[in-house]
C-alpha cells in the first residue's frame, strides 16, 4: 500500500514538500485554508523576488503548476483540519472541505502553515491606515506587482520616499523581539525598483542595523552604489501629517545626534513576520509546541529544524520562524524526506 502523507499549508514549503513526495510515489493530501495555492507570495502578488529580481512567476507559479497538475497530490482548498488523533504510529485526521468531510489515516504529517505579515496598524506610532501615503512592504509589493508606482493619496510620482526598517520586529513594545530577517532585503529590493521607475526621486532608508545577510548584501551594495539610495541611522518614533500633503517622519539621527522631522511623499514600513493564528491553531489541534516568539518550535533548532516535538509530524517553512522563500523551499524538501523515512520505518 502506498504511503499517505498529509501536508498542511499550500505555500512554498508545503507545495515543494508535496511535489517532492509525489515524485517518489507517495500519495499526498494538501490542505489549504485559502482558496488558492501559493501562500503569502501569491496572496500579496509578489512580483520580483530578491536577491536576483527574478519574476515570482518562475518560482511560485512553477510550484503551483507542479502541485496543481499532479495526480499524486490531492489539493483541498478552503479546507480545515477538524479533528486529529494519533493511532499507533499513524495519524487519524478529519478534514473539512467543500468536497465534503472525510476521515483519513496518514503515515506522517508535514505542517507548513507559514507566517502572517505584521499588521503595522497595531503599532500606533507609524500612523498606518491614518495616512494614505503610509504603506507597508506587502502593500508596496502588491502595488509594484500591479504596475502602480504612484502615491496612493494623489496618484502623483513621489519626490521622496522613506523606508522604515524593523516595523513590528526587534521591538518589545509590540511583543516581537526577534529579527524578521527578510524585511531589510525586501526594502532594499523595493527601493531599487522604485528608483528605477523614478530616477529623479530621493529614497532614504531609516535603519537601526541593516541585516541583508549572506549574498543579499550584494543587493544592498547595489542600492547604494548604483542607485544612490541613502541610508540614515535612526528609528522613527512618530509619523504625522506635514505640509503639501506630505507625511513627516520624526526621529533621531543617531550618527549626528540630532532630531529630525522630515516630510516625505511616501513612507514604506518594513513590517516583519509573525507566526499568525494558523500556527497557533495547529499547535492546539496537533499538540505541537510553540516557542516564546509564537512560532512552532522545532525539536532541535540546529540538528533537526524540520522535526516537531511529536514523532511523525514535521515542520517546514516560515511556521518555525521568519525566513526567505528559498529557505522555505529547502525545508519543504527536508521535511518531505523525513516524513517519507518515518512512513517507511513505521508501516
Amino acid at each position: 500500500m502506498p504511503e499517505e502523507i498529509l501536508v498542511i499549508g499550500g505555500g512554498p514549503a508545503g507545495m515543494n514538500a508535496s511535489v517532492m513526495l509525489s515524485e517518489i510515489g507517495v500519495n499526498v493530501t494538501l490542505v489549504e485554508k485559502d482558496s488558492f495555492l501559493g501562500g503569502n507570495p501569491e496572496k500579496f502578488k509578489y512580483k520580483f523576488l530578491f536577491p536576483d529580481l527574478q519574476p515570482a512567476e518562475n518560482v511560485i507559479g512553477e510550484l503551483i503548476k507542479k502541485t496543481g497538475n499532479n495526480s499524486k497530490v490531492k489539493v483541498l482548498l478552503n479546507s480545515q483540519i477538524s479533528g486529529f488523533k494519533q493511532t499507533g504510529n499513524k495519524f487519524d485526521v478529519a478534514i473539512k472541505s467543500p468536497q465534503g468531510d472525510e476521515n483519513k489515516i496518514f503515515n506522517s504529517v508535514i505542517v507548513a502553515t507559514g507566517f502572517e505579515h505584521f499588521d503595522p496598524a497595531r503599532d500606533a506610532k507609524y500612523s498606518y491606515q491614518l495616512f494614505d501615503d503610509v504603506i507597508d512592504i506587502k502593500d508596496l509589493e502588491k502595488m509594484l506587482g500591479e504596475g502602480k508606482f504612484l502615491r496612493p493619496s494623489n496618484g502623483k510620482p513621489p519626490r521622496n520616499v522613506a523606508f522604515i526598517l524593523c516595523v513590528g520586529s526587534r521591538d518589545r513594545h509590540v511583543g516581537n523581539q526577534y529579527c524578521s530577517r527578510v524585511c531589510c532585503v525586501v526594502s532594499v529590493k523595493q527601493a531599487i525598483e522604485l528608483k528605477e521607475h523614478f530616477p529623479e526621486s530621493d529614497i532614504f532608508i531609516f535603519y537601526m542595523d541593516i541585516r541583508t545577510y549572506g549574498f543579499f548584501e550584494d543587493l544592498y551594495w547595489e542600492a547604494m552604489e548604483k542607485h544612490d539610495i541613502q541610508i540614515v541611522k535612526g528609528r522613527v518614533a512618530e509619523i504625522t501629517s506635514g505640509p503639501d500633503n506630505t507625511v513627516v517622519c520624526k526621529g533621531e539621527d543617531t550618527l549626528l545626534r540630532g532630531p529630525f522631522e522630515i516630510p516625505f511623499d511616501m513612507v514604506v514600513l518594513a513590517s516583519g513576520m509573525e507566526g499568525g493564528p494558523q500556527s497557533l491553531e495547529m499547535a492546539d489541534k496537533l499538540g505541537l509546541e510553540m516557542d516564546e516568539h509564537r512560532f512552532l518550535k522545532p525539536r532541535n533548532i540546529t540538528l533537526s529544524p524540520f522535526r516537531s516535538n511529536i514523532d511523525g509530524i514535521f515542520l517546514a517553512g516560515a511556521c518555525t520562524g521568519p525566513k526567505a522563500i528559498s529557505d522555505a523551499i529547502t525545508e519543504g524538501a527536508a521535511a518531505a524526506m523525513s516524513a517519507h523515512i518515518y512512513a517507511q520505518k513505521n508501516p
Binding site: F204, P259, F260, E261, P263
Partner: peptide, 8 residues
C-alpha cells in the same frame, strides 16, 4: 533646532 530637510 530640528533638521527638517535632507537636501540631496
Amino acid at each position: 533646532r530640528v533638521d527638517s530637510d535632507f537636501d540631496r
